[in-house]
Simulated scan of single mutants.
Amino acid sequence: MTLRAAGWQVDMTCGAAPVQLEGVLPCGELFYFRARHDEVLLAVGGEDPADIAPWEREVEQEDASYLPADPGLRLLAELAGEHEKAAPESIQPDQPENAGSARATKIAPTGVPSFEV
């Protein structure tokens, strides 16, 4: 499944050092994803989540500045899942406009869906 097919609007703004994605989650919130040095960040919400975001989560990731697509998208999906759990009122999976969206789909603890941009 691709991010776009799951309802994400996403642009890669930098491919290496740091890897950066910006866009809109299926629920309509702006997001900023950055992989730099040894950390990965997802910032969600506000007018410019790359600057100031109401929700941020950062995790350690070795050689994040050159993060390949598959592990990077897996981390993005995991962090987006954390955001969903932190703000469950912002997305309701049973609403028709959210059916099948990446944020409305629960990520199983044994694995994360594979996404492509």
Rank of each mutant, 00 (worst) to 15 (best):
V10T: 07
C14H: 14
I52E: 14
L76G: 07
A43E: 00
D48C: 08
A86E: 06
A108T: 04
G111M: 07
E39R: 10
E22M: 04
I52K: 15
W55M: 08
G28H: 01
G72D: 00
V117S: 03
A104Q: 11
P93R: 11
R74G: 01
E89L: 11
V10W: 06
V19P: 01
L25K: 08
F31D: 00
E62C: 08
R74T: 09
G72Q: 02
E84Q: 15
L73K: 05
V44N: 07
L42N: 02
V19A: 01
S65F: 01
L76F: 15
A102T: 03
D63M: 10
E60M: 09
K85N: 03
F33C: 03
D11A: 12
T105D: 05
L30T: 08
A99P: 12
M1T: 12
R34V: 13
I91F: 08
L21Y: 15
L30P: 07
G28T: 04
D38V: 14
G46K: 05
A108S: 10
G7H: 00
L41F: 03
S65R: 00
Y66R: 15
E47N: 10
V24S: 08
T13N: 01
S90H: 09
P71E: 05
P68F: 04
P71R: 12
A77N: 05
G81S: 02
